[in-house]
Design a protein around this nucleic acid. Structure first.
Lengths: 189, 189
DNA sequence: CCCATTCTGTCAGTCTCTGCCACTTGTGGC
DNA sequence: GCCACAAGTGGCAGAGACTGACAGAATGGG
């Protein structure tokens, strides 16, 4: 009911903010300007997004759960590395992701230290969700440390692929870059 | 001459700040309190550290160069992954690193999102320094993407090892944890 | 139509961080 | 010893992000 309107407003703020950041640079745009452009009060912007950076990042937890659910659904005989790759691919294939808007957001995201940092925090959140699932698939000693290493490495691949995809002007698809990045590493048996 | 005094003051501020953060939590300590505890003005604290978080992180660029120099000094026939491991080990073995102070800093560092974020930014800086060096050691196609993947994965290993070292109460040395984390991954030939 | 819930705007306030200017303090030349 | 000169410091004012509190407006169900 009301949740629909809420999501719509949220998406609108995010869209306007990314456009402004793309044009003028992240730290040359104030929350007040974003609010004025959307037509709401600055206070409301902060109600939808706890921090200015979050207007670009979006909701990390939601997508993280998505990836985790994909991962637990993979067949247990599949090697971890391939299962992780498949889970990220499923995320990229999700509909409702505007191609051009996503690329612009990634470009803005890479342009400012504060944003890159907040984005990497998202990865830590994902890592906490994925590590237990990965640990279950491992044998041998020190499963926790190994699982965390593998998960963080996979997240690094994900990030590298998306960054490269946003910079290179559509030279290659995000999935292709993701596969290649994953191909550069291999967990030890 | 004067640089010595400068470094001393800098170290002193950092030490006091970490202690306060450890006791009261990062965001319950204001810059004003740090300044008062050290005996300088808040304005001066900001002269030494551009951001509050930097009192814990220290100077990333300096250590990053150190790692890079270690890496370029490794024999060229050595596999990249081992060369990277050795470079990080050399960093950990650097004297002048107070064991207990370092562990406390790492603990504080993991306790607050803002600090974790800033720490991850340090990794990006290191990555930009190390990637070209690693790329030179690779053969085949897509060296840049593969080099970046390998470097970021190694930084993840470094971070995981240090975090585990700070949490587990000296159960194992940082170097041992680092080796094990590195052991969980392998670049593909 | 009325009521309760939710949303929004306004206001006041804290904290980080930055420019600016005046003041003090060492440093080197004479 | 004295005097420019640079460097460091403190205080002040201000921008900007973010938070809590409260009052009015919109929306849903009865």
């Amino acid at each position: 009911m009301r949740a629909i309107a809420r999501d719509a407003v949220r998406a609108r703020i995010s869209e306007v903010a990314v456009d402004l950041f793309d044009e003028h640079g992240f730290d040359h745009v104030t929350v007040e300007q974003i609010a004025a452009a959307v037509g709401v009060s600055p206070r409301s912007v902060h109600r939808y997004f706890p921090a200015k950076e979050d207007t670009v990042i979006g909701d990390p937890a939601g997508w993280g759960e998505h990836v985790r659910d994909q991962l637990v659904a993979r067949p247990s005989e599949e090697p971890v590395w391939e299962a992780l790759l498949a889970s990220y691919e499923a995320l990229l294939a999700t509909p409702g992701r505007n191609e051009e808007q996503g690329r612009k957001a990634m470009r803005v995201l890479g342009s400012t230290p504060a944003l890159r940092a907040r984005n990497l925090e998202k990865h830590l959140l994902w890592a906490r969700m994925l590590t237990p699932v990965v640990a279950e698939r491992l044998d041998g000693d020190h499963r926790d440390l190994r699982a965390e290493t593998i998960v963080q490495a996979s997240l690094a691949c994900f990030d590298i692929a998306l960054t490269a995809w946003a910079e290179d002007d559509a030279a290659e698809s995000a999935v292709a870059l993701l596969r290649r990045s994953f191909g550069a590493l291999q967990p030890t048996a």
